[in-house]
Design a protein around this nucleic acid. Structure first.
Lengths: 194, 194
DNA sequence: CGAGTGGGTAGACGCTGTCTACCCACTTTG
DNA sequence: CAAAGTGGGTAGACAGCGTCTACCCACTCG
């Protein structure tokens, strides 16, 4: 009867996304989601046999959002690879910090039945973008770009997580975050050419 | 009456450490810890007013273990800084992978009341070791060693976490882990001198 | 001897995820 | 047109959880 009667399945995911971005992973109980969707607590079971599968579906939505965000930031991809990598890093960290709840969910493998539900695949295209940009940007000889991409990803992930946790905030202000990103990129690509 | 009657408080922590290293964070319910310690579920409250405080105490034990592990690996500190950094990285990743449950707990800030309970302080000395080693190893000019240390830490953390999650395992075998570590260190310190 | 108290027990409350029995509107079929 | 089947949802139960509260027992101290 709502304007959005797009089936309960979609509505549950929508409610979940809304809930996690606004109140964090803690609020994502099955019953609470059902409550906010206006159905009984048993209803979700028809579409998601278990709580984890619902959470995974919500997390997939997060990966999709991250993907489009990054794609939007990269634009037509005509800038040089190095600038694009910086842009990508900024977009990644920006997403992680703007949507902490969702980002946390996306990497809480204990909530997600990690492998089985295609979450790894959901983050794979982004990984390949990084590999591609790195090869085009030029690495030191003898460096496997997939290794470098893995290291870079891990670095961004670590920064986002430790920052969100507060472990990295020596000072306040996000200029330090930018410094961390720059330090990482320069380390992998050599100093900025002028 | 046991050979270990070192007070309930210590025993609860001990049981918790044992439990998390053997069965993961999932098993760390307050009632289960109490059960294994042989007391009623209300007993821990005398020493830990809330579940989170007990978990934090267990995590602190983890940070201590990580610290001594790293210290043991570094030895008398006479090797050159670069080699020590490699050793430290290996020890860090080794700890994270050998004690996945504990490592996960240590960085699950949603379980830990993060700031208030001195957990950040627990990891701070290790951070300073990294800063020290980096300055002695020599960075490119104009690089704040604290920033570099943060980036490095974030990188190690990210590698540990994504590896544990399975996101980084392009191939199997831990040689790839070693590659990731090497790539990171070489990126920050320049190629290995021969 | 009586009061006070540290340390633990036991039960209740509201919440959680899962399971099961039911039920109602709708479609399909004979 | 009636009967059977079924997709989609409700409602209640169950065990487990963290927290709170009332009690209680051994022990110490005045």
């Amino acid at each position: 009867m709502r304007e959005e009667d797009a089936g309960l399945r979609a509505r549950l995911i929508e409610v979940g996304v809304d809930l996690v971005t606004r109140e964090g992973t803690r609020a994502l109980s099955l019953r609470e989601i059902a409550r906010r969707a206006g159905v009984s607590h048993g209803a979700p079971r028809r579409y998601f046999p278990t709580h984890l599968e619902l959470l995974s579906a919500i997390a997939r939505e997060g990966f999709a959002a991250l993907g489009t965000e990054v794609a939007r930031a990269l634009g037509d991809g005509r800038a040089d690879p190095r600038a694009q990598l910086t842009t990508l890093g900024r977009a990644y960290l920006g997403f992680a910090l703007a949507n902490r709840g969702m980002y946390e969910l996306m990497f809480r493998h204990d909530l997600l039945e990690s492998n089985r539900l295609g979450l790894r695949e959901a983050s794979l295209p982004l990984f390949h973008v990084v590999v591609d940009l790195l090869t085009r940007a030029g690495l030191r000889p003898g460096v496997d770009p997939r290794i470098a991409a893995g290291a870079l990803w891990a670095n961004a992930h670590g920064i986002a997580q430790l920052w969100a946790w507060g472990s990295l905030q020596l000072t306040t202000g996000s200029t330090e975050l930018e410094s961390l990103l720059r330090a990482t990129l320069e380390a992998h690509l050599g100093p900025e050419p002028r």
